[in-house]
């Protein structure tokens, strides 16, 4: 009975997250696209929790909520048609993309049926969070610290890149090194 409920919830999340992921590229407003993407992530977060990786799943949702908001703001700022008044269909190399997407799906989806994966379920899923904590600050301390430093440098880099004052003067001027030629007519 319990397994049946778990299975039902899993398929709900699974179908939901795949359908919403597909809808991301099939909607007329970037805003809706962002909401669909978040729904897809929330579904995956749910599946992660079902698999026992509660911490990862919840952190995924926590992180993605902020990220989607930033994404929505960036889209309204820079992208045209945020309200979805016009149909949105902005693609290139569409056929290649479809083939690549379908191909990678088929290849990856066939893997578990072709490869004989070992069947070793996690013995104590209820301890998973504590184990992760011990791992983070124990054996994998260096990896964890590296991840932290990477994020910090990404943050600083992002601020520097997005800032109005580039390294060689104001960014609108096309902040080139003084010795280089100014940008040609390819601009904007």
């Amino acid at each position: 009975m319990n397994g049946l409920i778990t299975d039902g919830v899993f398929w709900l999340f699974a179908v939901g997250s795949v359908v919403t992921a597909f809808r991301v590229f099939r909607t007329d407003s970037m805003m809706r696209a962002a909401f669909f993407l978040l729904a897809s992530f929330a579904g995956v977060g749910g599946i992660l929790a079902l698999l026992g990786a509660e911490f990862l799943g919840m952190v995924l949702i926590l992180m993605m909520a902020g990220e989607m908001l930033v994404m929505a703001i960036v889209m309204v700022m820079f992208m045209m048609n945020p309200a979805g008044l016009n149909p949105m269909w902005m693609v290139h190399q569409h056929r290649v993309a479809v083939v690549a997407g379908a191909g990678s799906f088929l290849a990856l989806a066939s893997l578990p049926f072709v490869v004989d994966l070992p069947d070793r379920p996690a013995p104590r899923p209820e301890e998973a969070t504590a184990e992760l904590g011990t791992e983070l600050l124990g054996g994998s301390m260096l990896v964890f610290q590296t991840a932290g430093v990477t994020l910090l440098s990404a943050m600083i880099g992002a601020v520097v890149i997005a800032h109005r004052n580039g390294r060689f003067g104001e960014a609108e001027q096309g902040s080139l090194e003084p010795a280089l030629e100014p940008p040609g007519e390819e601009k904007g």
Partner: peptide, 8 residues
């Protein structure tokens, strides 16, 4: 795999 394919 489906998510990856759609993403790609």
């Amino acid at each position: 795999a489906a998510l990856f394919g759609i993403g790609l």
